[in-house]
Design a protein around this nucleic acid. Structure first.
Lengths: 166, 166, 166, 166
DNA sequence: TTTT
DNA sequence: TTTT
């Protein structure tokens, strides 16, 4: 009883704006995809890059923060746990599975000038599901400026529909 | 380019003995499942337990060590990265996905008296895919087997379709 | 503002029984040392072992659990953050520093048969400072003690000067 | 034997430019400090910020990369292990200790426009001590531009001599 | 000062 | 399918 570690830590870029839903119980849920890039040398010694796509889900207050502050292209640190949901495929009767990272901590990386800027807001949010909660500095006035400039930086992965495992 | 973090850390118990295969290229692959347990209080305040199952895959020398030293029930620490494979479901034409943890570090936890002791061997192995590699104390002779066969390709080959999730 | 990651994850064995103190504010504090072992090959190819000692500090309810369940020799997983305290060395006037891991999560590894079993109690505790908190299976009665006293301040108070490093 | 986990993961800003030395054996060593920020609410409910300073040491190729690409103020992800060195204080005869993070993986966060830009080079380096090694994209010409502009971003902590535990 |  |  009561033992086990199930931890995931990711640094990557959002492949999509977070989608926020409110489920019947009143709970907020946000979903988005995150790309982590890895480079390696292939057998010929050439530098290759592989992108791995992750499906992130956040709940409650953290869901709302993700929806408010994160945008496609933004670089973030995500901490959470693995969870595999299953359901019956009505077409085939097979059991099907989807693995997600249930987010418990999120941090925006880079500065406000970077990709994925929220409309009209400051950024640089940090949130941990447990404990301190979230806060934006109130004594630091928003300098405005980059509303609508949500340019996906060059680092931001451009998710291709056919490449996305979701 | 060249940035990103994709890390998974698990402590749990093996749900099955590792299965070792050698793929046509000569690479060894081991697969096993790992259960991580989490307890929480439900809305009525009753203690509940949830088990999450993870699909672990190890390559090369590490695969062989897993197969030799790990047994169903054994408690281990696993470090690795998330990887989602996809294939076309021939029955439906749908794209299907399976997420695995590609293991890069493994440590046996607890002592030799604990579950999952290999027949006739010592245990308490530790291995890291990168760098130092694996070693058994020299006073503890190997029971023979795969010395010298530890071919470790630079990149994981394509796992075949029979490797359905769970 | 409000960004940063400061995380430590250790698996090792206690070098000493935890020492529990109650500071004037009423907060419980537990201190113990943890050894993590690493093996490597030296330049001559001989297997060497290096032990690193860590100073762990736990607060509040977690401190009490550590004191109750952990014993010298017990294998544990520790998660926490780095904190360096400083004070003036009265002998020399120099500033001195001690780095500790402030524990936020602890898990006992291995089974009850293993080293460091508390006298007369069950074991296999897991605790996370944030969220769910700690619980023993209800069928396993507590041997009395600190129910209800689990005061857990939001911030760690100032540890006193006698807490010299090691 | 051969068991244990000693892992540190940090996201923070450099408090100083890395200093590179070559030790008599020919090995390169880089040292720098890293600030991780944490915000919390004090007992009065006011938002407080605490900065923790870490002493980072990198060896070999990674040391050279740190020296080349990192500058004061730059945001990075650091992975490594804890190591406490000790020596005898000749003034007092006391044993003294210093804890460092021996870096095994480093990633620059944010974009090239951010603080800590190397003179005349591109950035966005990633390096892991083990395995793949380091590489800069060669097919992506340097766009020049920000040489000498190593402005510490607003996020960059201004290390105060008296605050620095090193 | 731990552990194997 | 694990463990306590």
């Amino acid at each position: 009883m009561a033992r086990g570690l199930n931890k995931v830590m990711l640094i990557g870029h959002l492949g999509s704006d977070p989608e926020l839903r409110v489920i019947p119980s009143g709970q907020s849920v946000a979903n988005f995809t995150l790309a982590t890039n890895e480079s390696y040398k292939d057998s010929s010694g050439n530098l290759q890059e592989r992108t791995e796509w992750h499906r992130i889900v956040a709940w409650g207050r953290l869901a709302e923060i993700c929806q408010q502050y994160l945008k496609k292209g933004r670089q973030v640190y995500i901490e959470g746990k693995l969870q595999t949901r299953s359901w019956d495929d009505t077409k085939t009767g097979d059991k099907r599975y989807a693995t997600e990272i249930v987010c418990s901590d999120m941090q925006m990386l880079g500065s406000a000038r970077e990709g994925g800027v929220p409309q009209g807001g400051g950024n640089n949010a940090q949130y941990s599901q447990s404990g301190g909660g979230y806060s934006t500095p109130s004594s630091q006035p928003q300098q405005g400026g980059y509303q609508g400039s949500a340019a996906s930086g060059s680092q931001a992965p451009e998710p291709d529909k056919d490449d996305l495992p979701f």
